[in-house]
Structure formats: C-alpha cells, structure tokens
C-alpha cells in the first residue's frame, strides 16, 4: 500500500472511529441519563414534590443513606486492615486470604443474600440464640447493612493492595527505626501514600452500597417505610404503575452518584492545593 493511500484511509478512519465513540457514548450514557431526569419531571413540579415528600420515599432515602453510611466506614477500616495485613506481613494462607476477599465479586449478590438468610434467618444455626435476645437481623435494617458490607467489601482492599505492594516497606521501616510508634507510622507515612487509592475505594464502595439491589432484595422483606431502600422502592413504584415516581427515585440515585463524584473532585482539588 502506498503512503498516500494509507494516509487517505487514515483520514477516513479517524473521524469514523471518533464519531462512533461519540454516538455510542450518547446512546449508552448521556441519553439514558438525560431521560431519567426528563421522565422524573414528567409529572410536573407538583408531582415531583408530592412524590419526594411521600413518607415511604423519605424513609427509603434515609434508609439508603443509613446503609451506605454504615457500610462505607466499616469497609474502609476493614479494607485498610486487610490490605495492611497482606502487604506488610507474609504468613501462610496469605494468598488464600487474598482470594477469599474476591468472593463477593465472584458470587451473584442474590446468592450472598440467600447465604445470610440461611445463616441468620429463623432456620439458621443462630436462630434460637437471636430469638432469646429478641434480635432481628434479617428483614430489618441490620440485615441490609450486613449484606451490603459483604457485596462491597472488596473495593477498598482491591484498590489498596497493588499500590501498597509497589510502595514497599522502606519508608515505614525507616520511620520505625527512627522511633515512630505503629500509629504514627500509619498516620504520617502510610496514609498519605495511599490516600488516593483509599478515596477511590470509598467512592466505589459508596456507589455500590447505595445502588445494591439483588442481595438487599433477598433479606429486606420489602416492608414499606421500614426495610425498603431506594433501589427496592424503584421496583415497587414501577409495579404500582407510578412510572414518574420510579423515575424520581432513579433520578435521586443518580444525583447521589453525581454528588459522590463532586465530593471526590473537591477533595482531590483541596488535597492538591495543600501541596
């Protein structure tokens, strides 16, 4: 093929690929996103307000934030500990532990929900113990938190492990030699190094916790105004023929996602300015 022919074919291919990319982005990402908001406003501002202030909707919003608000710190601490453990120490079973961490990604969320139901439900091994103390885990908010922690636990670990492996231990060892306590090492050496990965892990965890449907739907019992999270509420409204309401709830979830991204951008900007 001559040089000119190659150039002319390139001239042809480049705009084609670019426009293909643009069209796909529009069709798969932008249009659905815009459509959610258009459909949410289809009931008018009055309908929007009425749907938003409906007690069950308010409770679904609160419950979703509660579940995410508990899941994120739990997985943040747990994930950091695990990552620290597997990258700073070598012990038998370390690889096994790393593999185990990935299980929530490998199994379907519905299976995760069922596992918890069989274990902590009233036919499970802990049933009589929980019953004696009148503790209700499944079909109540603790169950929702438990399954959400399960399905979203790998995010922080998976972000931290590769980074902490590459960082190595020299800086930390130096700090220890200089007489720093374990806590000081973590706070002044490790944390500054891993903060971006940590932040990213938190954001992914939060996104998953807010949007989780499968596992939550198994252990929820979908009691309106009690155990109905936003994703479950969307399904419920849809089945009630309240399409506008369903889209309003969907728009809320989208807004939470956008807000998360904004918070992330803001933190990045602020941290960048400190340096």
């Amino acid at each position: 093929m001559s040089q000119t022919a190659l150039n002319s074919s390139r001239r042809w291919i480049r705009p084609l690929l670019i426009s293909l990319g643009v069209v796909l982005t529009l069709l798969l990402l932008v249009v659905p996103l815009v459509f959610i908001f258009v459909a949410a406003f289809s009931a008018g501002v009055g309908g929007l307000w009425q749907n938003l202030t409906e007690p069950d909707m308010l409770h679904a919003i609160g419950l979703t934030l509660l579940v995410a608000g508990l899941t994120v710190p739990i997985n943040l601490i747990f994930g950091t500990l695990i990552a620290w453990c597997v990258t700073r120490f070598s012990f038998p079973g370390r690889r096994l532990l790393l593999t185990l961490i990935d299980i929530p990604f490998a199994v379907s969320p519905v299976v995760a929900g069922l596992l918890y139901l069989l274990l902590y439900g009233s036919n499970g091994p802990f049933a009589s113990l929980l019953d004696q103390h009148d503790i209700q885990l499944m079909f109540a908010w603790p169950g929702l938190v438990m399954v959400t922690v399960f399905v979203s636990c790998p995010f922080v670990v998976r972000e931290l492990v590769p980074l902490m492996s590459t960082l190595g231990t020299e800086q930390e060892e130096a700090a220890v030699l200089l007489g720093a306590s374990g806590w000081q090492v973590f706070w002044h050496i490790t944390l500054p190094n891993i903060r971006w990965a940590l932040l990213y892990g938190v954001i992914l965890t939060n996104a998953r916790a807010v949007g989780e449907f499968g596992a939550v739907s198994v252990v929820s019992g979908t009691i309106r105004g009690q155990t109905n999270t936003l994703p479950l509420h969307i399904e419920l409204l849809q089945q009630d023929y309240n399409t506008a309401g369903a889209f309003i709830a969907a728009a809320l979830l989208t807004l939470i996602a956008i807000a998360t991204l904004v918070v992330k951008a803001f933190l990045q900007w602020k941290l960048a300015r400190q340096h």
Binding site: M138, F139, G221, T222, R224
Partner: peptide, 20 residues
C-alpha cells in the same frame, strides 16, 4: 400498619425465614 407485598409464595418463604 405496615405492608409488605410480593408474590405470595415468596412472602411465605420470607415468613418461614423469620419475617415477623
């Protein structure tokens, strides 16, 4: 009065599993 709705076989399952 709280309501939980679903396919009635599924609802029965949930009650057997501990939905009070």
């Amino acid at each position: 009065i709280n309501q939980s709705h679903g396919g009635s076989s599924r609802q029965a399952q949930a009650i057997l599993q501990g939905l009070r």
